[in-house]
Design a protein around this nucleic acid. Structure first.
Lengths: 145, 145
DNA sequence: TCCAAAGTGAGAATCAGTATCAGTATTGTT
DNA sequence: AACAATACTGATACTGATTCTCACTTTGGA
């Protein structure tokens, strides 16, 4: 999805929720489009020094509520934020257990669809209605080796 | 693994780290053996009123360090704790996005091993050394429907 | 242009989790 | 069995990421 398409889609999501697509929110979305994985608050602020922390937190919450952003919690002390999957592509996360960094990766479609159907079977056996899955690979990144 | 075997294994892990297997630590392990998924601090304390919060936090940290316990962060406001996989079985988590409750489930072995090899391929393509994976299914539990 | 409603940002407040430390329990030694 | 020496406990204080507050600013419609 191109920058303009993402922008349009985010604008629509916000408008449907009677929210504005302000400059600050655009800047957050721009920051999230950069980097190779979900970003921490510190990374977002580092990417754009004009942003103020409290507004970014508030805007991330709103962007998450309207479905434009997803919050990731990996286990270290910081939440991470990325654009929602329908604005990017289905992907998973490689999490470095040493430095905490998170990088996106994908599985090939066949593995993904096998997995997906197995998950639905398992879920319904337990009375769950599955809506999505989340797959993280834990290990050590190149830098930390 | 039987209660006694788990107990022995935890005892060994602690001893190897020059830690004692005290009554308080036994009680925490007992609490974690109950329930259908990882437990929050509140659930552990509710299960055994004789435990004090600060000691449980400290002991969970130690049990995690020696490899007897795993900390799970699902995205709501509380960490959850479970016995390490080698003391139970490889499993995944159904996470109710409405109430936050977490329940264990398993995939059949074939799906699991296909997944595992795909993950290793993907990881090494990015210079990662994979050590384990984590798969969560998000949805709505029976109670919240 | 003006107004009402929405957004901003600096700082205060919250609260899960961690650190402190005096008191208690346990282990090894004589 | 008594004595250290060392580990553990638990009440409490502290920390820090995130959320809340509120006076001020910006925005969009009439």
């Amino acid at each position: 999805m191109s920058d303009a398409e993402v922008d349009n889609e985010v604008a629509t999501l916000l408008r449907n929720a009677e929210q504005r697509y302000t400059t600050g929110r655009r800047r957050v979305v721009t920051a999230l489009r950069h980097g190779t994985g979900p970003l921490t608050m510190a990374q977002i602020l580092a990417h754009d020094a004009s942003l103020s922390q409290s507004s970014v937190y508030r805007n991330l919450t709103i962007l998450e509520e309207v479905g434009a952003v997803t919050r990731i919690v990996t286990g270290d002390d910081f939440s991470r934020y990325e654009l929602a999957e329908h604005l990017t592509e289905h992907h998973h996360h490689l999490i470095c257990t040493s430095c905490g960094d998170v990088v996106d990766f994908s599985l090939d479609d066949q593995v993904e669809s096998t997995l997906d159907s197995s998950l639905h079977v398992a879920a319904s056996a337990l009375g769950f209605v599955a809506s999505s899955h989340r797959l993280d690979l834990l290990g050590t990144c190149q830098n930390c080796r």
